[in-house]
Computed example of a mutant assay.
Amino acid sequence: MQKRFLLILLISTSVFSHAQYKVNFTEKFKKANQGKYKIEINEVKELVQIMIAITASGLENDDMVEQKGTYYQDVIQHFKPFANEKIIQTFDSLLVESIYNYIFLTGNGISYDFKGNKLVKNNIFDFPATTISKIKITENPISTYKTAIEEFARKSNFRAFYKKHKPYYATIVSTYEKNANLGKQWKWLEKNFKTTQNSYTIFCSPLINSLNYTGDFENNNFKLIYMVLPPVDKLENLSARENELLNTRVMFTEIDHNYVKAPTLANQEAVNEYFKDRKKWTNEAIEGVSAYPNPVKVFDEYMTYAVFVLYCKDTYDEKDFQETKQSVISLMKERGFPKMQEFTDKLLKTRSEHPDKKIDDIYPEFLKQFVQ
């Protein structure tokens, strides 16, 4: 299938960091979510995912839209007859203009809920996706196209489709809860880092493929970490434990961006000095490396995966740990990070010498090992 671009972008924490005032964490919301996590296939967000899937851009790009499986076939059979609707053409033009519009559209889906056939503003998420890197929008696109989106949902009978597939969505949620160990990861991270979080939400869709990212919202002394992820994989050629490790890695290396961020910034001067030789630390021939344009971004990508290796060492037996370590090293090399072996070994060594310290506190000694 022809691909216009490869979506392997893992956007760092605080994707929408300039939008914190666009959420409203009420006391009721805080009480209901403190110390908890949830996995959600949001109705309006799923509508937007489906609309994107039937655009010309979505149909020709199986990195942007997951095109395998029965659910995708159901989507195409049900909704492709409406692909010539004006709003679908508009969405396609936005995607052609910039791939970031995929995030602005789907990311703001959570700012509305259905009430009958109408979209009404969500009282918690007002305008959650305003800024990605240095790109900023000033109007919520769901608000801009609200009437046309409502009309598309009505014409295509979307709400009936969503209701029919609720049992399938429920299996996605339950599989996450059984196989991805979010609670265990959260507990380990807060034991090993100084950063703490109040709550987590995973926004999932069966139509998400390679574009996975994490960010945070902070309001009214409450911090919510969110992740946008595909469903948990269950590959037939892997054992149950291997599938668990694969799915844990996908989630963990998104979550821990939110913990690595603070100590990296606290040691930014050293990171910039020791990781300034980009040719050493990245393979520019690999597509996607450009998403990590400076030493801090490069270091953090190494660090998030190396911390996952630490987690595996603490959590699994020696065989699983060693196999996972080698798979991470191979994966990172394929992604354009050729020094993962050296980086991981240095972190493991530093951690073994200071097993009772927070990872934040071993940063200075760890970084000194990279002095030329």
Rank of each mutant, 00 (worst) to 15 (best):
D317H: 11
A153H: 04
F366G: 01
E318N: 10
A129D: 07
T147F: 01
K178R: 12
E301F: 02
F91N: 06
S210I: 08
Q67H: 01
Y363R: 12
L105T: 10
N267W: 13
A285Y: 13
F79N: 06
K31Q: 15
K115P: 09
K38L: 03
T106C: 12
I41R: 03
Y200M: 09
I329Y: 10
T55H: 04
A240P: 08
N140F: 07
S133V: 09
D74P: 04
N198S: 13
N140Q: 03
I54S: 04
L265P: 02
L207D: 04
V250K: 12
E342D: 04
L10H: 15
G336R: 04
T175C: 00
R278C: 03
V96E: 15
F79Q: 09
D63T: 08
D356Q: 07
I286L: 09
K313G: 08
K30T: 11
T13V: 13
F82A: 14
E365V: 12
L10I: 15
V289Q: 08
N243V: 04
A129W: 09
R351C: 00
E287S: 09
V271W: 04
K68W: 07
A56G: 03
I54H: 01
D361R: 01
L207V: 07
S57L: 03
D233L: 07
E365I: 14
G35L: 13
P81D: 12
A19V: 11
P230K: 06
D216P: 00
Y176Q: 04
K279Y: 12
K339A: 03
L265S: 12
Y162V: 11
L9R: 09
K178C: 06
P295D: 00
V271Q: 01
P81E: 14
S93Y: 04
K118A: 07
F16H: 09
V260G: 12
L105G: 05
F203D: 11
Y363A: 05
F161W: 05
S12K: 13
R335G: 03
D74S: 10
P206M: 05
S12G: 14
K22C: 10
N157L: 12
S327L: 11
K346F: 09
E242K: 11
S199G: 06
E254K: 03
P231W: 05
Q49H: 14
F275G: 00
Y21V: 10
A291C: 08
Y176F: 14
V260L: 09
Q89C: 09
R159S: 15
L238Q: 10
P206Y: 08
T196F: 07
K45A: 13
F275R: 01
K121C: 11
Q2C: 06
I8L: 10
L59V: 00
K223V: 11
V96T: 15
Q49G: 05
Q20P: 03
